[in-house]
Amino acid sequence: MTVSDTRTEFKLKSPPEDGISSVKFGPNSSQFLLVSSWDNSVTLYDIHANTVRMKYSHERPELPACFQDAVHSFSGGLDKTLKMFDFNSNTETIVGSHDQAIRCIEYSPEVNSILTGSWDSTVKMWDPRTNRLVGNYSQPDKVYTMSLCGEKLVVGTAFRKVFVWDLRNMGYIQQRRESSLKYQTRCIRCFPNKQGYVLSSIEGRVAVEYLDTGAEMQKKKYAFKCHRIKEDGIEKIYPVNAISFHQGYNTFATAGSDGYVNIWDSFNKKRLCQFHRYNTSISSICFSQDGTALAIACSYMYEEETPRDPLPENNVFIRYVTDQETKPK
């Protein structure tokens, strides 16, 4: 850990003991970070003070978590139940459950509802005020990733399928698409300007696609290779695990199992910067709402044939990014 504690980057104290499944910044400030982990816990960190604010746990490893607002979080995981936690009253409520593990959770401020996607091939919509199930929308395959684009919900499933739903009319699937990448979908995130989404695959590629189905817009979509390392004439190709958008500039960061984080300018098709290499795979990243901080979760993901011995330690890094690194040139 030579580079870890500099002025622009520091490591969170008392990180989770097992793999980190997701990191999410709070909706209003860059002070609070929600970290969910395979050690069954969901932890709320105070970034400014570098302390743990709150911690609660599930019965099973926790896959995703998300903020509804500054004081409410939702989380779910292998125990198949969706939990709401109130930070003010320090109480947890079980909202509902899926048939299989919950893979992703999103909060939509547009329709004020929580959306959960699961390996049981459904997306469920919950009302956070009453904690009731609003709708159960079956997907043709297991849900792997999900992202909101205003009122559009983009769902990435097994078999490289991408479905676009409209939250205002969940009666039918608005668009059915095949991923333009050749291998399994790892992550989908939507542009803050709501024009499209970025999709990453398990084999070192990222695609930029647009929601507008018009021929002209579709012409603009593209894909590029990344997160590959050349060593001794052999190109090593890593999974691209996470994507996060800078809310102001529409640039995005990608993180892969190679331990690198890259920031891309999708419109000029440029890479803006690359951070130093972290000691292990990066499982999740998140820009803060104001775009000044980037949370980077480093934890081994068992992607290799034989797990490393000893297992690399799990860490969350907070990196303060500059405009130079994130603003399109």
Binding site: R160, K182, E203, I234, E235, I237, Y238, P239, S257
Partner: peptide, 14 residues
């Protein structure tokens, strides 16, 4: 998946 022909110069890291 759209599998490609094996290529000795490339190695998938998963």
């Amino acid at each position: 998946a759209i599998f490609e022909a094996p290529d000795p110069t490339k190695k998938v890291m998963y």
